[in-house]
Design a protein around this nucleic acid. Structure first.
Lengths: 185, 185
DNA sequence: GGCCAATATTTGGACGTTAAAGTAATGTAC
DNA sequence: GTACATTACTTTAACGTCCAAATATTGGCC
């Protein structure tokens, strides 16, 4: 039996989603009926969570051929950008804005694949310097090309639109105290 | 020795962040110098990741007194909104936009705390109905009041600003094919 | 020199997510 | 009525995040 006007479906999260229904819009309706003053805040937060999930999924698809997760990619990229190709673990946590334990975790995995090496700092023996290897350099270079070609999961947006997204979210970060004191608005 | 003009610090991720430095702005600079065409896309994506992290952190702080994570709260809230206080596991995954395994995980934990019960559907014995208990109802009610009072982690934003955030991200969702076909822009 | 608070990293535990594989139950087709 | 594909849920495994509690090393301070 041929399938009549079958609805187009969006794949995500291991299931097929009903394209005629938007869970976020539905939640906003529910909220408006009970706590109207906070409905927009709820929708904003839920939207951030959803978009994060979508983008992460697309990015990890792009990185999969290189055997990298997004977290691993970011760590590698940070090291590749650094002058000497190495940084203290703690510094990496600050730059990547993640917990020190997350850095330990990521570097351990990268080290097992010989993309990064751990070295003790000669200046301060408490410090561990993560150092990118030649293999790491070339892998991150390839992965970066792929991500750029995929526009980081946002191929449908122009640079202006992408800049808008960043600008609006910069406003959110500002109200959350996440920006330097004298940051331009 | 009294501390002279000490920089104000933002706590996050288990460490103190340098307030005079914005990692996202720095990454944008690095990108502009090498792949200028994609710098805004990169910054947009990184901003989404960062804001998601900030909001999740604030929300979970708010929920902590109730012993709920955000994932647990969302599952409970969804059931509380439903007509009969119960939904099939699969339906919950669709509405929450998460993988079925995540639902199994969340419901198992809620069930152990007697906030939810599992019942086999009388109609289809493959189906498991998650049902919110009276205890679950009152807990989610309290938690919702707390989240609304905290404006879902966005107390600094007006409703209009929050609506802007949601609108901009709705645009992103649209280009990603995450919205119903005939969704109003 | 010796004590002690701060700093840097790791370890272990709790949860979240996904993908892939396994187990039932349903339903359809022959 | 019997085989087979589909559907629903759970299980397992790999990673990610975080926090809190070790472990080392440094660096004042007396």
């Amino acid at each position: 039996m041929p399938n009549v006007p079958q609805a187009i479906t969006v794949q995500y999260g291991g299931q097929v989603l009903d394209p005629s229904f938007d869970p976020i819009a539905e939640a906003h309706r529910q909220w408006s009926a009970r706590w109207p003053g906070q409905a927009d805040h709820m929708a904003a937060v839920t939207s951030v969570m959803r978009v994060q999930q979508l983008l992460l999924s697309r990015i990890e698809d792009t990185l999969k051929p290189y055997g990298l997760t997004f977290a691993a990619y970011e760590a590698l990229r940070l090291l590749a950008f650094s002058r000497r190709g190495s940084l203290p673990m703690g510094k990496m946590g600050e730059r990547l804005m993640v917990h020190p334990a997350s850095v330990t975790n990521a570097i351990t995995r990268l080290e097992q694949r010989a993309l990064v090496e751990r070295r003790l700092s000669p200046d301060d023996r408490r410090v561990v310097l993560a150092t990118i290897t030649a293999a790491g350099q070339s892998l991150v270079q390839e992965a970066t090309v792929a991500l750029n070609q995929a526009s980081f999961g946002l191929p449908g947006l122009t640079s202006e639109q992408a800049a808008d997204v960043a600008a609006v979210l910069r406003g959110v970060r500002a109200t959350a105290g996440d920006l330097p004191a004298g940051a331009a608005s």
